[in-house]
Write a protein that binds this DNA or RNA. Structure first.
Lengths: 153, 153
DNA sequence: CCAGAACGATTACAAATCTGAACGATTACT
DNA sequence: AGTAATCGTTCAGATTTGTAATCGTTCTGG
């Protein structure tokens, strides 16, 4: 793009959104976590006990890719793979206490990140922005809490 | 994330922005162009005659990466590498008539994309959204027309 | 009850992409 | 002239991401 004068909302959204994602990735790097790992951690916390395949389907990624992400979180003790006694094929994903603690830090970082990003908007304007973005997200079929573009950096 | 209730502006921005970028990539795929190529094409059109290294610096990408993008655009006849007679090291980048025509199509696609994305907002609300996003972009140091996150898809 | 199909997770493999260092050509400095 | 710096290019390495084959487990139909 870079050709519209003035730029349309879509271009601005993509540019500011990419900037927001990049800055968030920088902030959470100090926890040795990547955005995809954080997205997975949050999803497991929101709906625990799901099988890996179900999670992979929700996130729209191949199950083979999920294995590595779960491995990374499990190695740090943030999530657990529990075998389901009734169906020992599937691994139910659960969050640990350490995972909950990590989520707390992430939430704090997220709020700081939010404030830094929107510091040029007052409280009422931020609320309006959230309203518009939520409406677009709902209209476009984006499920709340799911990120289409969680890339590693 | 997927952990904030309700989600903050930054998360919404990243999610909606990634969605906008993905949908735009789908639309321009019918022109056999990727978003990075389009960003480069637009930049060359906006400031022609620049050297490749200067362009690479502006876009924040290594010069080695720019070579492939310029190759792709040059192979289709959308841009030209012209040797500067006074300094034959550098290749000045210029847009061709075919490149201008392609930009016209891209602008049309961009407007359609914009309308589709913001169809749940009325005209006044879209203007407000643009204002807020522009203010954030300026405050965050995003140069207009430059995309921090132009990935291949 | 048993054989085979179906399913979930994992591993191995392959394709695509980005980065960083080296190289040839050209120019600037002394 | 000659040495160092610059520009574009290319190449090898590393990082990701998707696809296909493997292994254990469970379900289904005789």
């Amino acid at each position: 793009m870079a050709l519209e004068n003035p730029p349309g909302s879509a271009f601005l959204l993509a540019a500011v959104g990419a900037h927001a994602a990049a800055r968030f990735a920088e902030r959470v790097a100090e926890l040795d976590l990547t955005p995809p790992q954080i997205g997975l951690l949050g999803l497991i916390a929101a709906s625990p006990g799901q099988s890996q395949q179900a999670v992979a389907h929700v996130l729209g990624m191949p199950p083979s890719r999920l294995v590595g992400l779960v491995d990374a979180l499990a190695d740090r003790g943030l999530v657990e793979r529990r075998r389901n006694p009734t169906d020992r094929r599937l691994h139910a994903l659960h969050i640990t206490d350490a995972g909950q603690a990590a989520l707390g830090k992430i939430a704090t970082i997220g709020r700081e990140h939010d404030d830094a990003l929107c510091r040029s908007l007052d409280s009422s304007e931020r609320e309006t922005l959230r309203t518009f973005l939520s409406r677009i997200a709902a209209d476009q079929g984006l499920r709340p809490g799911i990120h289409p573009g969680y890339r590693t950096v």
